[in-house]
């Protein structure tokens, strides 16, 4: 059984059946990509996994526990971290502070009232944050305003923030959308390194086939709210149904 099990999930918005009957199993410590044309329901599915949406039917279990009805912060505390399409960081705070926050959240939980201790005196947390910044090659930028970072650095910071929580499942929503080629390749290398070095499961929603085929061990193709096929990248490339539905007859990959 996979670490994340999605069973018969359906979601309807008014007259639109966004998700039909989705079954998905993501194996532990794998990199699993979900691809599909626009409107296939990729983002709806993702939002059902993190608690932003509650599916109408079906069940979603993470490590044997249901996530349905839990709020995003509770699901995060279970061990699922999410990286957004446009980097969601704390723009008004310094880079170091951005990294301190998830470290505090990991150690102290969803709410902890420590109003009289200076945060920089918390050596354990500061060390952990600096260590993570080092891994992301951002130590020299720790005093910068996070909003002033480049797009690629914001993405690195966001991924670093998620990793500092030591999640068991990392969800990425089009992590390279709108990035220059060089930044895209850097992100691919970073994600590869993360999946090689850590006990972590990565689920990635992506448009960019280059990214998908360089990273994923398994790929699920979603079309019109239902999974069309799930297989290894090599098999997906040659799959006639996928070519027809998504890649287009003439495109070579």
């Amino acid at each position: 059984m996979g670490i994340l099990e999605v069973k018969n999930v359906g979601k309807r918005f008014g007259g639109l059946q966004a998700l039909g009957d989705v079954n998905l199993s993501i194996a532990e410590n794998s990199v699993h990509a979900i691809i599909g044309p626009n409107g296939a329901g990729k983002s709806t599915l993702l939002n059902c996994l993190v608690g932003k949406l509650i599916p109408d039917t079906g069940s979603v279990t993470f490590d044997g526990q249901s996530v349905l009805g839990r709020k995003p912060f509770e699901i995060n505390q279970m061990g699922i971290s999410r990286v957004f399409q446009t980097p969601e960081i704390f723009g008004d705070l310094s880079v170091l502070e951005n990294m301190l926050i998830p470290c505090f959240a990991k150690r102290d939980g969803a709410f902890h009232l420590s109003a009289f201790k200076a945060m920089l005196d918390d050596k354990e947390i500061v060390e952990r944050a600096l260590h993570m910044l080092e891994e992301m090659n951002m130590v020299d930028k720790q005093d910068m305003h996070a909003a002033a970072l480049s797009r690629g650095d914001k993405r690195r910071l966001e991924i670093g923030m998620c990793l500092s929580q030591e999640p068991r499942l990392l969800l990425l929503d089009e992590p390279t959308a709108g990035m220059a080629r060089a930044d895209t390749n850097n992100t691919i290398d970073l994600l590869k390194q993360i999946s090689d070095e850590r006990d972590i499961t990565i689920a990635i929603i992506e448009h960019d086939m280059h990214v998908v085929f360089s990273l994923a061990q398994r790929i699920t193709v979603l079309a019109q709210g239902t999974p069309l096929v799930e297989d290894t990248p090599d098999n997906i490339k040659g799959h006639p149904k996928v070519r027809e539905a998504y890649l287009g007859e003439t495109q070579t990959v």
Partner: peptide, 15 residues
């Protein structure tokens, strides 16, 4: 200050 800056990120950081 994080609340002021980005509530969405806070929620998805387990806070």
């Amino acid at each position: 200050r994080a609340v002021k800056s980005n509530q969405q990120r806070m929620n998805y950081t387990g806070l």
